[in-house]
């Protein structure tokens, strides 16, 4: 899957998943509270529960394609594994687990380092699963309406709306430009590919300025007066769902305290 395909797939899922019609308040409340709890946990137990839960909800209830859901984890997880290896090998203090003698020093690997590494791994994966659940089930439109409701500054919400819309337009334009360059036998050498890229970015930048101006004219023609008003009509959240989530959050928090001292090694 190429990058732009992946974005388009995520976007498509946000509009077409089985939970698309549910209140964005419920979904956001669930995802963000689970995120906060998962990240603040000291051991790996609660993050794993959060991860399993979000994965079940995304795949089982929202019916997101497993390929897409798991695909999203690939790059962050690769980065994460690298970081965790470094954490395990170079961090920590106290009683060392293994000492590797080197001619000039002794390299110590600590118990606490490994524990930090493992906990970090699961906390990040848990947090990712919360965010992926949110982006795969909630459309940008719903998120913008929600942001307006909680009184986010107008300008931020407007910018997000428009950036979202025009990302897709410019992705399309970029793809066309790259194709046009290729068809005119863009050379594949390093230097010339840099040159082609520079031209691409240059003309794309001019296109964005131009597009901005034309969009403003079009908006003005429809009575734009400096503020984009949004039609706020999403369904009210079901109280029982919110209560259920709150109850579950309390359970997780209790679990955090119960698992404070569970270590890996």
């Amino acid at each position: 899957m190429s990058h732009s395909d992946l974005y388009a797939e995520v976007d498509r899922s946000a509009y077409t998943n089985a939970l698309a019609k549910n209140s964005p308040i419920t979904k956001t409340f669930f995802a963000l509270s689970a995120l906060a709890i998962g990240v603040s946990a000291q051991s790996f137990v609660v993050p794993i529960i959060v991860f399993i839960l979000c994965t079940c909800l995304s795949l089982g209830f929202a019916k997101v394609k497993p390929r897409l859901y798991l695909g999203l984890f690939v790059y962050p997880t690769l980065m994460l594994i690298l970081s965790c290896i470094i954490l395990a090998l170079f961090f920590g203090s106290g009683q060392s687990l293994i000492d590797i003698p080197l001619p000039w020093t002794t390299w110590a690997i600590y118990k606490s380092g490994i524990s930090i590494s493992v906990n970090t791994f699961f906390r990040v994966e848990g947090a990712l699963s919360c965010l992926f659940f949110l982006v795969l089930t909630t459309s940008i439109n719903d998120l913008c309406v929600l942001l307006r409701r909680i009184h986010m500054p107008q300008v931020m919400v407007e910018m997000s709306m428009m950036i979202y819309r025009y990302i897709f337009l410019f992705l399309e334009i970029t793809e066309k430009m790259i194709l046009a360059q290729k068809l005119r036998l863009r050379r594949s050498g390093w230097l010339s590919s840099i040159r082609s890229l520079a031209m691409l970015i240059g003309s794309l930048f001019i296109r964005t300025l131009d597009q901005g101006e034309r969009t403003l004219v079009a908006m003005t023609a429809r009575g734009y007066g400096g503020e984009i008003r949004i039609l706020d009509d999403f369904p009210a959240p079901r109280k029982i769902a919110l209560l259920g989530i709150a109850f579950f959050d309390v359970l997780l928090i209790v679990l955090i305290f119960l698992t404070l001292n569970i270590g890996v090694v």
């Binding site: 709306m161 025009y166 004219v217 079009a218 429809r222």
Partner: peptide, 23 residues
């Protein structure tokens, strides 16, 4: 407008059509 991409700026069709009446 000639190019609908100049005109459609909102994240959904509904939101875009609602822009004028809301104004």
């Amino acid at each position: 407008f000639q190019d609908p991409n100049d005109q459609l700026f909102a994240p959904t069709v509904k939101q875009d059509v609602a822009f004028g009446p809301l104004n």
